[in-house]
Design a binder for these strands. Structure first.
Lengths: 228, 228
DNA sequence: CCGGGCTTTACAGAACCTTTACCAGCCATT
DNA sequence: AATGGCTGGTAAAGGTTCTGTAAAGCCCGG
């Protein structure tokens, strides 16, 4: 199954060069020399991805993109003049998926095309991922839930994050400062007892076993004890 | 609710700078100063997108990416040394979704993050299958109707869309921002309560059961509870 | 102009996070 | 062993953010 690329580019020399290269790389190539033709072809639903020059003789490339986005979400890579940051940013805002500065390296174009197509292929194949197990705990990231022996633990968002980080590092110590950064998303400041509180609440919800599931490593941090 | 960015970058000065900027732009930021920590965090499934420096003190960024790709398809933006085309192309081949040359303009980083997130959000959207049953509910996409025990529910267009999305992902959490994008077709802005209103109305029409069919996952979104 | 549907506003209440306060160990020093 | 500094546990209070929902406003097609 070859992927079908639509190349919208007015510079004949560059267009032919790229078309030939893409074709050699196993793509099926459609060409358009102006915005109007390109838009019509793109809307015709028989290509998988679009390479679009911004500078076109008739309609501006960004306008083509805008009209395209009104009805489809076909992946689009923009060709922009090198260094023109404005076009790039506007392009993204209008809904481009990627851009390449001109003059462009064909290898890079192919790499980007493939990256984009691969992502789309992946997204469309939906896989249900089973939860990860840690002793009697099971993490279900999809549902953002933790099960303890088939019973759902009623955790808050922060508690979930903390537990998740501890479990990912189960058996080894997570320093308080890292735990803070990773689970709460901010730096641990002096006299901030927030983390201690969350740990306390978590322990309560996990059941206050002995020895505790979440061990304190004084002066360092915490560590989730894995079952033997 | 806000998108969660994981920033893997060893240069503390740059990392803190970017983290602060991203945070001001409404992202939730997690930081990691080396490849090992970064990889562990990324695999923990509580970030939405990764910004990954290629030059890291321990594991090479490309290797981090490779290991990440072995099990997930989390979107990744690479930070590369300017002009190093090899890294860029290898990066794409390993599965990066985008790259930015260093030193990078924070505005451009944000633009790319948003472009990538928008694309992902769109691609992950899936429709329900025709005539699918969910407990006592049956969706008829051709007629755009929902039956509850053979009785048609009188839903508005938007309510139908929302329910459709929730059912397509029944059992797992749909984030507000995605729900907004998929059902209402626009981005969720701060203080926009539209979605909450529609959910409230939907619940009323579905019958205000207990426990509610549409569960609230505070700080994240909603989830349609599957029948046991 | 009317009515339905979408959005905004406003307020109340709930859930959550953080701070405060007090107490108990740990540890090095006296 | 007693002292004092420091770290950690936790209850309770305080404050913030998020959510539910009624009501009013807005927009568009008829």
């Amino acid at each position: 199954m070859q992927d079908r690329v639509l190349l919208i580019e007015d510079d004949e020399e560059l267009r032919v060069l790229l078309a030939r290269y893409l074709s050699n790389q196993g793509f099926q190539v459609r060409e358009a020399a102006n915005g109007e033709d390109g838009l019509a072809l793109a809307l015709g639903q028989n290509c998988d991805i679009v390479v679009l020059d911004i500078m076109l003789p008739d309609i501006n490339g960004l306008e083509v993109l805008r009209q395209l986005r009104a009805s489809t979400h076909l992946p689009v890579i923009l060709l922009t003049a090198r260094g023109d940051e404005t076009d790039r940013i506007v392009g993204f805002e209008v809904g481009a998926d990627d851009y390449i500065p001109k003059p462009c390296n064909p290898r890079e174009l192919v790499a980007r095309l493939q990256a984009l197509l691969r992502r789309i292929a992946w997204e469309q194949h939906t896989d249900v991922d089973a939860g990860q197990n840690y002793g009697d705990l099971r993490l279900e990231p999809e549902q953002r839930r933790v099960y303890q022996d088939e019973k759902v633990l009623d955790l808050t968002a922060t508690e979930y994050e903390i537990l998740q980080v501890l479990l990912a590092r189960a058996g080894s110590v997570v320093r308080k400062t890292d735990l803070m950064q990773w689970a709460l998303g901010r730096r641990l400041e002096a006299y901030d007892r927030t983390l201690d509180m969350h740990i306390s609440n978590l322990r309560k919800k996990l059941g206050n076993d002995d020895p505790p599931r979440i061990e304190t490593v004084r002066g360092l941090g915490y560590s989730y004890r894995l079952p033997a």
